[in-house]
Structure formats: C-alpha cells, structure tokens
C-alpha cells in the first residue's frame, strides 16, 4: 500500500522538456534574419583567415606572395570578396543597430548612437584607405 510520504518514482519527477525542432528559426522572418546575422560571423572569420594567409605569404618571401597576389586578383577571388563583403556589411548594419539599442538612453537616443557609429565608420574607412594603402 502506498503511503503519502513515499518518494515519487523518477518518471514522475523527471523534468518536462519541450521538443523544439532545430528548424524553429525558419518559421518567422525575424528569426531567419537573426540566423543570417549570426552566420555572418562565419564570413567575418573567413576574411580574418584570408588576411592571415596574405601575411603568411608575405612572410614566406616575394615568390609565394606574388603567387597569392595573382590568385587574389582573379575573378573568383573578386566574387568571394563580394560575398564576404555583403555578409560583413550585414554584420555592420546589425551591429550598429544593436549598439543604439544598448547604449541609447537619456539625451542620446538609440538612433543618435547608431548615427554616431556610421560617422565613426566613415572616418575609420577613410583612415584605412589613407593610412594603410
């Protein structure tokens, strides 16, 4: 006979876990855009690795560097950079928007913070052009 003080069986106490399919993000536009934003980081990593490859070739000497340079001037490389550029731009736009939401308070509205980010971005881009190249 069961008494009221008997411990419940493990089946009874087991935590209920709601099963969510791993395609949950395909159901709404906002979650699809969220996933694109998250996966843009793959292209960020890819470009960092491209930069490392360029510096590695440079450290190997002129022969290796010129061979890589010839490849990097090809149509395929241009296409790859256009794709990476599109994802990095999406990362940039979403990053600046989130910055506005995080830091925008009091006299500085979210829109103002985002706008300042764009101004700094333009200045940084001009800086890269004149300082680095």
């Amino acid at each position: 006979m069961n008494t009221p003080n008997t411990s419940p069986s493990p089946e009874v106490t087991r935590t209920y876990r709601r099963l969510i399919p791993n395609t949950w993000w395909l159901k709404q536009r906002s979650t699809i855009l969220f996933m694109i934003r998250e996966w843009s980081s793959v292209f960020v990593a890819l470009y960092a690795i491209c930069l490392l490859g360029q510096l590695w070739a440079l450290s190997e000497g002129p022969e290796r560097y010129n061979a890589l340079l010839a490849k990097s001037l090809s149509g395929g490389s241009l296409l790859l950079h256009l794709v990476m550029g599109a994802f990095v731009l999406y990362h940039m736009v979403t990053w600046f928007k989130i910055s506005g939401r995080i830091f925008g308070s009091g006299p500085l509205s979210p829109g103002a913070v985002t706008a300042v980010n764009y101004v700094v971005w333009i200045a940084a881009s001009i800086g890269v052009f004149y300082w680095i190249f």
């Binding site: 960020v44 470009y47 930069l51 950079h81 990476m84 550029g85 990095v88 731009l89 990362h91 940039m92 990053w95 600046f96 980010n117 700094v120 971005w121 940084a124 881009s125 890269v128 052009f129 680095i132």
Partner: peptide
C-alpha cells in the same frame, strides 16, 4: 569587424 572590415574588403 564592423568598423574596419568593410574598407579592407
């Protein structure tokens, strides 16, 4: 990545 990568790419 947001501030500097676009110009480099």
């Amino acid at each position: 990545a947001a501030f500097l990568f676009p110009a480099h790419i």
